[in-house]
Design a protein around this nucleic acid. Sequence first.
RNA 1: GGCGAUUUAGCUCAGCUGGUUAGAGCGCAUGAUUCAUAAUCAUGAGGUCCGGGGUUCAAGUCCCCGAGUCGCUACCA
Length: 680
Amino acid sequence: MAKQFKRTLITTALPYANGPVHIGHLAGVYVPADIYARYLRLKGEEVLMIGGSDEHGVPITIKARNEGITPQEVVDRYHTIIKRSFEEFGISFDIYSRTTSAIHHKTASGFFKTLYDKGEFITKTSEQYYDEEAKQFLADRYITGKCPHCGNERAYGDQCESCGTSLSPLDLIQPHSTISGSIPVMKETTHWYLPLDKHEAWLRKWILEEHKEWKPNVYGQCKSWLDMGLQPRAVSRDLDWGVPVPLDDAKGKVLYVWFDAPIGYISNTIELLPDTWETWWKDPETKLVHFIGKDNIVFHCIVFPSMLKAEGSYILPENVPANEFLNLEGDKISTSRNWAVWLHEYLEEFPGKQDVLRYVLTANAPETKDNDFTWKDFQARNNNELVAIFGNFVNRALVLTQKYFDGKVPAQGIFNDYDQQTIAEFVAVKVEMERLLDNYRFRDALKEAMNLARIGNKYLADMEPWKLAKTDMERVSTIMNLSLQITANLAIAFEPFLPFTAEKLRDMIGLNLWEWNALGSFALLPEGHVLGEPALLFEKIEDDVVERQVQKLLDTRKANEAAAYKAPPVKEKVAFEDFMKMDIRVGTVLDCQRVPKADKLLQFRIADGLEERTILSGIAQYYPDPKALIGMQVCFMANFEPKKLRGIMSEGMILSAEDADGKLVIIQPSAKVTNGVEVK
RNA sequence: GGCGAUUUAGCUCAGCUGGUUAGAGCGCAUGAUUCAUAAUCAUGAGGUCCGGGGUUCAAGUCCCCGAGUCGCUACCA
């Protein structure tokens, strides 16, 4: 814990280049990482902040296919938007690159080769779907078919977007390839796996014993994984978009994104510092810190460290300050549902207000639990805190100086006890801010910075220079000098959080010196120094502005609801004989109960006119009271291949209609019929 | 279902290894003040610390049972 480091390497989760960046990304990763980087730089420490776009993986290829463009064009588009909006927002990356770069391909495949040569991988052969027409294995997302759960015809091999359940390609009914449309066949394929189980022992010691200071959620989740026992993880996939596996017998195989992406941190460092990058990744005196969201904990605490350890020459992260999630107006942020505040849109609609958003996201950061971003809160924090406390104090100090001293820093004179006490408070706040920042508690650190402005306001209120001006200009001189020194201190204290404002303030008062250690000094502005024209640091945000934003969101929600359901296109024509192959019948529910230890499954006992049969159906969440279904007549597929689920043999499928919102409703005959009759 | 985290004033959050009347910011109320973007400063009112048991001289803080929320994971014919 008390370990001293010479330099700090900060990595930020690589945003996936299939969409722009939104406030959730910012609050969770980039704003805190940027605060940390700026703070350390201000202290004069050696720091590197690495970022980049994650540009491989199946969803990007699908997006490309849907839009009729190449994957490269997709990632070019979003990489450009993301990179530009980060820059404009003041995220101070030393480099923001991408995983499609040549350097990354070289680095990642080299990394793989090293592990391969060291014998760190095992291979496993399994059967996967293969498209004979396109002559390639099909990634989960390349297979569509009917969702066994909700009947959606366009479910993907990994997930049904209609009902949200995750699937395996083998689950799909009537699977077909999205590439050629042909029906895929099962074929053997071999992949390399990283045997995480082999790394369990040292991981246990390293995390559970040596990093007890990690955040509770991070530590707890790692412990949970380690206690469950680690499994080998495939590092390659059959796909043509990505970093090719650098082996002769690996045609058509690329590195799995999870293996590929974190190496991007390394590649981007190499791109930036081709000669000295190893100092940053291999010297034990470098402190490596990963900023991520909570969904990424296991990758960064267990998987990536295992990769680094297997390679052998790399250091391990010192901390992984994962944040929780940010919600928006009470709802989960969602790219696909377009429920988000997009950074590039914010920058356009609120020009010059980068710091307002940075402030709100930090003051309300999801550091310990999920938080909610609301426009009302955005407005309140701007008007009541930035304008009223920080902006107002600076304005008071500058306007008073203008009025009484012609805009020149007046003589300091002699500090009295109250002055000294005020100065002492500043020094105390500085110490506290350091403690908080060093422990990744940015929300509280920002609060302390605001306290400095509060101290300033109180100082002016207590000293009342506007009254003394009538009797004791010498004292007023000291008061205003001190107030200006406070202002200069604010420019330093706020730099990590509100860099644009800090710069504006520095320019305004002509402060050249700015380093963290100057914080707490009251000799930052010399007597006689001429100040610039006072300008407002922040402006009020009126009701109609935030109302418009809320309206925009509501419109989005409405549009989403309207667009939520599109009747799927009619499927391929089938012959009557094919239809007749399906044996759909009516039966009566004799019994119905939940399957233990399964969230979604209901177990039906059906009177089918012959004997009885058991059918499982994944509709438990829509029928909270299974007993109520007893006695009801249902339609079911009678000649399905029986299948064991959760240890119970299911002999058929209950037919349900899936509503627009994904809700399943059981189909039943409109009048009572005899059990076992056919439906046609 | 399993595992992890979380649940404290209207809102957002602090409360380390259990110890006098549970804290902060915002909002609210009252007062003071006018240099300032009606901003500021002071004072105050707000809490069966998710619910139920238990350990202890003493529990928001430890143990057990349960509920809500989020994440990971299993299941989805």
